[in-house]
Design a protein around this nucleic acid. Structure first.
Lengths: 158, 158
DNA sequence: TCTGAAAATGGACCTTT
DNA sequence: AAAGGTCCATTTTCAGA
């Protein structure tokens, strides 16, 4: 089902999720592999899509986006095309960092980065009030981004 | 307050958040700067902490973590040391991708990646049931990761 | 795994504003 | 001074034997 990843691959994944700028020879000494082997394995995992991409992680507060907000959204209609339209709207908005479509009471959870409450207020009009498929929404203000990342666990044993 | 970022810096940030593997000479032609200037600016932003780090983004479903769950947690006591202990617990758990400490009804929102419901069930025991500072928690199952990222908007104008 | 070529990074130095 | 550009040394990546 999944591509075969052996224990070397998984160790590499763990390293490279933490810091993608570690040179491959250094990775080699850490996982006990030659530079070339590291290179081949990383390339392979990128081709397989296991490694989706490499990205710079920017500290939001350093660029003026110091407010993180989580918004729960309930929709009026769950018709596919309505939902798809909403998903597209949310996905396209640069202030929406993350959007999950949920089972249960709430239909969407959004993680938003904004400069301040004013900006959130405006966003609120744009995304929710002016969208007549939004039945209600609930705003949760983050006081502390305790842990933020996209790290996927890798089972180093097994 | 924030470090000064001019329009070149912001363009670079946008590029590099999307794909950190673009070579600096290519970045140079895109933003109209020499390779050396690109290099200096990226390094400076890394030193300033604007660029927190570079990371490989792994596709969770490709490594067997195909379930994303959002859990809301309400605590019993909001004493600082109790809270800190919880924050540490959550932050340390590899299955916890993200953890936000919230104002209002719920105290924490967690974004979790797990293999399946069994694993979530077990995690639930470990993190919530066996923690007597957890008053209650609510599980929201994600059916679609509509948008997932840590991208911070950069104001290309201004 | 080793070796070497090609590419990318990063520093020195000079020039422009 | 502050920042850009060019050129060069070093480091890193990556393919072939």
């Amino acid at each position: 089902m999944h591509p075969e990843l052996d224990s070397f691959d998984r160790k590499l994944l763990a390293e490279v999720q933490r810091d993608a700028h570690t040179p491959q020879n250094e990775l080699g000494v850490r996982v006990n592999l030659s530079t070339a082997a590291v290179n081949r394995r990383l390339r392979r995992m990128a081709e397989l899509g296991v490694i989706d991409r490499y990205a710079a992680i920017v500290a939001p507060e350093k660029v003026g986006y110091s407010l993180t907000i989580i918004t729960m959204v309930e929709v009026e209609s769950e018709q596919i095309d309505q939902l798809d339209a909403m998903k597209r709207t949310f996905a396209q908005c640069p202030l929406v960092q993350q959007c999950y479509y949920l089972a249960g009471e709430w239909d969407f959870a959004l993680v938003l980065t904004v400069k301040d409450m004013d900006q959130y207020n405006e966003l609120t009009r744009q995304l929710f009030f002016s969208n007549n498929n939004v039945k209600r929404f609930k705003t949760l203000v983050s006081m502390d981004r305790v842990k933020v990342g996209l790290g996927v666990p890798v089972d180093l044993d097994e």
